[in-house]
Simulated scan of single mutants.
Amino acid sequence: MKFTAEELARHPDFLLSIRHLAGTLRGMFQAGPRLARLLTSHQRWLLTQTAYALAMQYDPGDPSSGFSAVSLTTLITQHKVASRNTVLNFIEELFTYRFIAHAPGEERRRPRHFEPTEVSNQAMYGWLLANLAALDMLDGGDRAGCLQAHPELLRIAQPLVARSCLEDVAWREPPAPIALFLWTEAGGLVVDHLMARIDLSGADTERFDVGRVETRNLAGDFMMSRTHLQRLFAKAAQQGCLGWRDEPKKTQLWISRDFVREYCGWQAVKFAYVEQAFHFARATLKGVPAKVPAEA
């Protein structure tokens, strides 16, 4: 089955899939915090996905292709995601922590081309696998199993997802309540944490219970300042996105159903592009069956 964004947003189990994905991404952060932080704000998500996509499309015979400071800066500034200096600082960070390396023979050439290191390849594979597994929950599909059997699908599918998300304003510019979190450092981690913990069994028609949240511990886990996290929660509370059931202690958190509904609608945009890219890659790559046998 191929889902559209509209179908995903309406699917009765989509929230369950999103909660599952949020929990998986939370686990990925715990396994590799420094690398996972590349996806913890929307700006860095767009930078990371675009850089990886450029690297996957590198043609040694075409100097303008691939991931270089010039190519990434051009795309990112064209869509007003970040400034040139932000892009250059981002690349320097990737190189310093060995998430990227110079492409062989490119050390002294201009522009220098970069390629992801193995740890980055594994992280991007894990991200795509988690998204495909979340889609499989909706229709009993075999997307994740297919990727596991044919990991080379990543090279075809990921650039399609990245380019589509970058070019679509509906994903590039999240709704205001979502943007409040995602345009801030580590804000994506906070949303994933809340989404992974929402209680879907509650009868409240306006709120989901999240449970006990200690801002000091949460801020420490996500390597962000407690003050920054408290201000983020305060702004979100002013907008009615979340609140505390035990004022003034502020330990028992709830999140509004309107916020969750809007978040699901926004996530559906990305999931639809993942869906399209996967089916295109599966149909394009030779040797990949239309459906992977169950025992695979």
Rank of each mutant, 00 (worst) to 15 (best):
R19A: 05
T24I: 15
M28E: 15
F29M: 10
P33N: 08
L38N: 11
T40P: 07
T40K: 10
W45K: 14
Q57S: 05
D59Q: 08
S64Q: 11
S68K: 03
A69G: 13
L72S: 11
T73D: 08
T77H: 07
T86D: 08
V87D: 09
Y97D: 10
R98W: 05
F99Y: 09
A101Q: 11
A103F: 13
A103W: 13
E106W: 06
R108A: 11
Q122L: 14
G126S: 14
A134K: 06
D136A: 04
G145K: 07
Q148W: 09
H150D: 05
L166I: 00
L166M: 02
E167P: 02
D168R: 09
V169C: 13
R172A: 05
R172H: 06
F181V: 01
L182Y: 01
W183P: 03
T184H: 12
T184Y: 10
T184F: 10
V191N: 04
D192H: 12
A196T: 02
L200M: 04
S201P: 06
A203E: 13
A203L: 12
D204Q: 03
G211P: 03
N217M: 14
G220V: 03
G220T: 04
M224C: 09
F233T: 00
K249R: 15
K249W: 15
L253D: 00
S256A: 15
D258Y: 11
D258L: 12
D258R: 13
G265T: 04
A268P: 02
V269F: 05
F271N: 07
F271G: 03
A272W: 03
Y273W: 07
V274I: 11
V274K: 01
F280C: 05
A290I: 00
P293C: 01
